[in-house]
Design a protein around this nucleic acid. Structure first.
Lengths: 187, 187
DNA sequence: CTCTAACCTGAACATGAACTCCGGTTCCGA
DNA sequence: TCGGAACCGGAGTTCATGTTCAGGTTAGAG
């Protein structure tokens, strides 16, 4: 889909990168609400060039999102290295959410009601899910996460936090409430 | 905004209701992604008629959302009647979220990045916030919610849950995790 | 250096959806 | 019953944005 890295003329390869860079920045800022003309201008190219490299807007967005997910997988892999199960979990959780905060396109992909969901695509292209599952299991086994905590709950939590990223940065408090529970002493 | 109930010709009042009914149903189903033509057809009217009653799509949506918020305020008022502070809180929370689940337009209004936020408009038109604040305070005072729980946290929680309403009905689990916390025994 | 396939440009086009407009219709007071 | 103000219908207008393509430019093999 984004593949043809080899056998591109030098200028073509250069322009392709420029498009990706411009699109990444703009999508990250304003999510889906960016015009192709705008991306072209930012990249210092004509619109036609965008379409030489990407079939349509959707494909361009997919390329950007794909990159983010690869970065996300790398992050997860790194988090899994931690000896302490809880540290691994926290690193993954906050790393994931900080990326989401910095990138509206990423949030858009994860929160949007797309069909088929990006989550599914990711499951087929990266092993992010598998790594996450392992990290979660370790934290559960160490007694740091409740017994019935599943990898699906990680998705639940992150979606919840991401929904609180517009406006003030309330998502950290949301995560804190989740970690500690909202109950009081008399519960 | 939605005001002129009196001094409308009989057919006009009837049609106005038809428009509101059709719009409410469609918006509830598919949120913002509904065409004016579609609403007109569903109401058995021409598009022109929609525009006779509402300045634009935004105004129509606002009227619908406004109604939902009034219903929400009534719900909150009813919940506040409960003698048990916790029962009041739970009634409000689940009532609110069940409404959100049934109405995509409502979710759209609450989750969207609109400017100014619907939340602000609501604060000026209804006393939903005040009632919620009272319910929250009672639950805190009774020791059923953590001491530092604020009304803002109610918003945080509901936004989080609403973000998990697409696809499977995972929002109930999200709320449960929030209520109990995700920590394990060794935390 | 030359030649051509690959590449680039951006004005023009296509599409879709909000909104307008005015001839025709309906309500309702007198 | 009648007159006219209020109202309605829906084809047509406008505007925004994604996409194309004919014509000019450039990389790079020979």
């Amino acid at each position: 889909m984004t593949a043809p890295e080899r056998s591109l003329r030098a200028d073509a390869r250069r322009n392709r990168e420029a498009v990706l860079a411009a699109a990444a920045e703009l999508f990250a800022q304003r999510g889906d609400a960016v015009q192709m003309d705008e991306i072209a201008e930012r990249a210092g190219l004509g619109v036609g060039t965008l379409y030489r490299h990407f079939a349509d807007k959707q494909a361009l967005l997919a390329a950007i999102i794909g990159r983010r997910f690869e970065a996300m997988t790398a992050l997860a892999r790194a988090a899994a290295e931690a000896e302490d199960p809880w540290e691994a979990f926290e690193t993954l959780l906050y790393g994931y959410l900080e990326s989401a905060q910095a990138d509206a396109a990423f949030r858009f992909a994860l929160l949007g009601p797309e069909e088929p969901s990006w989550n599914d695509i990711v499951a087929e292209k990266t092993d992010f899910s598998a790594i996450t599952e392992r990290i979660v299991r370790r934290a559960v086994d160490a007694g740091r996460l409740r017994d019935d905590f599943r990898a699906d709950d990680f998705v639940l939590i992150t979606r919840g936090a991401m929904a609180n990223m517009t406006g003030a940065g309330g998502w950290r408090r949301h995560v804190m409430l989740l970690l500690e529970g909202i109950g009081g002493p008399e519960r």
